[in-house]
């Protein structure tokens, strides 16, 4: 396990790369899903309120 984490001495570079990729791509994915949730809730609610009024 320690050997695996050590990455033949390149641990810092390898794991930072993977970490950065996780942050960026995961960040985009998270942002996407949060935005989707927000829009879903507000847009559909608003549409339903409009319908009830009319």
């Amino acid at each position: 396990m320690a050997e695996f984490l050590n990455m033949g001495g390149y641990a810092f570079y390898v794991w930072t790369s993977y970490f950065l990729a996780l942050i960026l791509l995961g960040g985009v994915a998270l942002w996407t899903s949060m935005q989707s949730r927000k829009v879903r809730l507000s847009a559909i609610r608003k549409a339903q309120q409009r319908r009830r009024k009319s």
């Binding site: 985009v28 994915a29 996407t32 899903s33 935005q35 989707s36 829009v39 879903r40 809730l41 847009a43 559909i44 609610r45 608003k46 549409a47 339903q48 409009r50 319908r51």
Partner: peptide
């Protein structure tokens, strides 16, 4: 990611369409 974003953008743009009101929030 594209599919989820598509849904979000379509909802934003079509928020006045009648089918939106039939969705479950």
């Amino acid at each position: 990611n594209l599919m989820v974003r598509l849904r979000t953008l379509i909802l934003t743009r079509e928020s006045r369409a009648s089918w939106v009101a039939e969705l479950n929030p």
